[in-house]
């Protein structure tokens, strides 16, 4: 059983709640990105806590590429029902009309049109002045330099050389017309913090995170789950059932599963602590967080490489305490 450092988690929780309240108090039209993954689930939980007994005072925005795991959409709708939040689902209708899909158009073009452009459309359409996202500073090297309140010009561009200094907890939330803010309340959380918090707070996640027998194909080491009949098999490919789970969730044809027996939160945490590979290696493209869907420092995600899956080495629970934690990732 993993040990929980509750004082550390409580401090992170309080910091995130303070940030969420600052958004609600300072902006006219905030919106929270909801990607249905574990980070989003933590954000949702924190937002419920921040405003209790009020309902979350801003809508949740899901950018739906139409290629998400079906289970994610079911889960999303159930959460909206259960917690009574305002859910906005946006799909790039141009992309839909042109039949943009990950098989014919390649993952980078598909991602650009159905995610990056779709997000901008949704933000512009809603005239949102603040978009709350679940990005963390431990995810990537350039992310480590992003502010908690990260300014975007009217073209949604981030200028890392002219970021506003952030001192103490005093956040400069002022905007000129057309400008907007990206806000990252869990900036200071690590992947392990996210998982231990989910465990401590018993936050519900889509079952895809937990090991189960699922139909997959193995493409050069990446396990792709067959979620519906739109999947295009390569010649000779056949789905076979394997016990797998996902470390991140996204578009099913672009999301690699890992072979794992971890079917409970403690098992996942222990497996993760033993892992010698970074979180992102399961992604064929980056996840659904706000920052990653946008240009970073003026460059787009141009490449998409299939990284080899390195299987987690099993480790005994007793070895966990002294074992350092996966904190760092990136190319």
């Amino acid at each position: 059983m993993p040990t929980l450092d509750m004082s550390h988690l409580r401090a992170l929780e309080a910091e995130s709640i303070e940030i969420l309240r600052e958004v609600a108090a300072s902006f006219e039209r905030p919106v929270m990105m909801y990607s249905i993954g574990k980070d989003s689930s933590v954000l949702l939980h924190l937002a419920r806590k921040a405003f209790f007994p009020s309902k979350i005072p801003f809508p949740l925005l899901h950018v739906n590429t139409t290629w998400k795991f079906r289970e994610m959409i079911t889960f999303r709708d159930r959460m909206a029902e259960q917690y009574g939040f305002d859910l906005i689902s946006h799909t790039n209708s141009d992309g839909l009309r042109d039949g943009i899909n990950p098989f014919d158009h390649g993952s980078s073009r598909f991602t650009d049109i159905m995610k990056t452009q779709a997000l901008r459309q949704a933000l512009d359409a809603g005239r949102y002045d603040a978009a709350i996202g679940g990005a963390r500073r431990d995810e990537e090297k350039s992310r480590a330099k992003e502010r908690i309140f990260s300014h975007r010009n009217a073209q949604h561009a981030w200028d890392p050389k002219h970021q506003r200094p952030e001192l103490w907890r005093v956040f400069n939330t002022r905007l000129n017309p057309g400008e907007s803010m990206r806000v990252f309340p869990i900036s200071n959380w690590t992947e392990l913090d996210v998982w231990t918090y989910i465990y401590a707070e018993q936050i519900e996640l889509p079952a895809l995170y937990f090991a189960k027998s699922r139909p997959v194909v193995d493409r050069s080491g990446t396990l792709i789950m067959i979620d519906d009949d739109r999947f295009r098999f390569e010649p000779g490919e056949k789905p076979c059932d394997e016990v797998v789970r996902f470390r991140t969730l996204g578009d099913y044809p672009l999301t690699g599963a890992i072979r794992s027996e971890a079917a409970t939160l403690p098992e996942i945490i222990m497996e993760m602590q033993a892992s010698r590979t970074s979180e992102r290696e399961g992604r064929l493209i980056d996840s659904d967080s706000v920052g990653s869907m946008e240009k970073e420092a003026g460059r787009l995600f141009l490449t998409c490489k299939l990284l080899p899956i390195l299987r987690p080495t099993p480790i005994s629970p007793s070895g966990l305490a002294s074992r350092p934690i996966n904190r760092f990732s990136g190319f």
Binding site: K141, A144, P160
Partner: peptide
């Protein structure tokens, strides 16, 4: 992390690391 920094060989902004 940022390309500009690598090119100049300097760190241009506050970065947060966890260990």
């Amino acid at each position: 992390g940022l390309t500009a920094e690598r090119e100049q060989g300097i760190t241009i902004d506050v970065a947060y690391r966890f260990f």
